[in-house]
């Protein structure tokens, strides 16, 4: 009788452990799933930024004298922030960083709540143009709490 009781308790504990593990695992998968989704969306948005040639038009506008002033940088950040926010999926926070081939950050624009996101993912695309050079476009999308 005692052996049966012990066996029952053991089965109960093993079942408890197994179900808790499954729940934890599914939580991890859920997070992974959300991350994976954001990564897809961010990559698609980075690709759109590269293919639309937004950078070329904006840089051509501000690079007339060969350098970018702080005011011009702010202007570019605002324009790109507006475009990316408009094109992004609903209810996400956005950050865009554009780096040139000398590792200088050309654009660094984000929406205010990007740092408060629980999950965020970054998508990257390379943009090249024979007149203005090679750029890495990094778009981060985050799901706010």
């Amino acid at each position: 009788m005692k052996a049966l009781e012990l066996a029952l308790i053991a089965i109960l504990l093993v079942t408890l452990y197994a179900t808790l593990c499954t729940r934890t695992l599914s939580m991890k998968l859920a997070l992974e799933n959300d991350y994976w989704r954001l990564k897809h969306e961010a990559t698609s948005l980075a690709r759109v930024l590269a293919d639309s040639e937004v950078l070329f038009y904006l840089l051509e506008e501000v690079l007339k004298d060969g350098t970018i002033t702080a005011q011009e940088r702010e202007y570019m950040n605002n324009r790109i922030r507006t475009i990316v926010t408009a094109l992004a999926p609903p209810n996400v926070e956005v950050k865009v960083i554009v780096v040139d081939s000398n590792y200088n950050t050309i654009v660094n624009a984000s929406t205010p709540l990007i740092n408060e996101c629980l999950t965020a993912a970054t998508g990257k695309a390379i943009y090249t143009h024979s007149l203005i050079g090679i750029f890495l476009i990094m778009v981060t999308l985050g799901r706010p709490l």
Partner: peptide
């Protein structure tokens, strides 16, 4: 507390 959900079909 989790705001995400799992959808295997989408993946």
């Amino acid at each position: 507390l989790m705001i995400s959900s799992l959808s295997v079909d989408v993946v």
